[in-house]
Amino acid sequence: MIRVTDLVKCHGPARILDGATLTAAPGQLTALVGPSGGGKSTLLRCVNGLEQFQSGTVEAFGHTLTGGQPPTQPALQKLRRAVGMVFQQFHLFPHLTALENVMSGPVHALGKPKAEAEQTAKRLLARVGLADKAGARPANLSGGQQQRVAIARALAVEPSAILFDEPTSALDPQMVGEVLAVMRDLAADGQTMIVVSHDVDFARSAAVVHKMVAGKVVQSGPPDAVL
């Protein structure tokens, strides 16, 4: 369960999040929609601890962040192992192969043995349809392939939930489908996900849709009611 309560985040005089409140139930696909500049990315980053906020709380799987109180490093690490993130720009590590990218979390964040991490990574690459690209460097992969590796990388640390920030917005149209297919597959498997998406079709497959405008969640409910 992820519960965001009355989140307030300011940049100088600008209130980027202005009392945003939402919940995401475990095992469900939660969609976050709304006009650009509404604060969706900022909200996800707050949930992941990449941004700090002035007031409100974020609770995720037993970990809590409180506005105005800088979290400790170990607390942040624990939270992030529970809540993974997939970025619009993929941010794969360019000096590592696809396989090594996927292994990096288990090895360097969880301290798993290399052999075990490699097994997991191979399985996950196969799951996103890239078993044959294990040895490729990010520079030699298409955008769609890179984003699928990024998803496998997020899955590798076995997070309770994954946050997706416009995962297909940076892709050429013909590659959007392959990434969304992987995400649908995850959702069908009962992976808890919060997805920021402009893709109406995809948002329709969510259990709950939240609409954000000007730093507030203005509407929450089933897709038919919100979209």
């Binding site: 601890g49 990449l50 490093q73 624990k78 992030r80 993974g84 970025f87 964040a109 997020a154 640390v157």
Partner: peptide, 10 residues
């Protein structure tokens, strides 16, 4: 940020 999001220490 991508590395931090995986739960790695600073």
């Amino acid at each position: 940020e991508a590395a931090l999001a995986l739960g790695m220490s600073k």
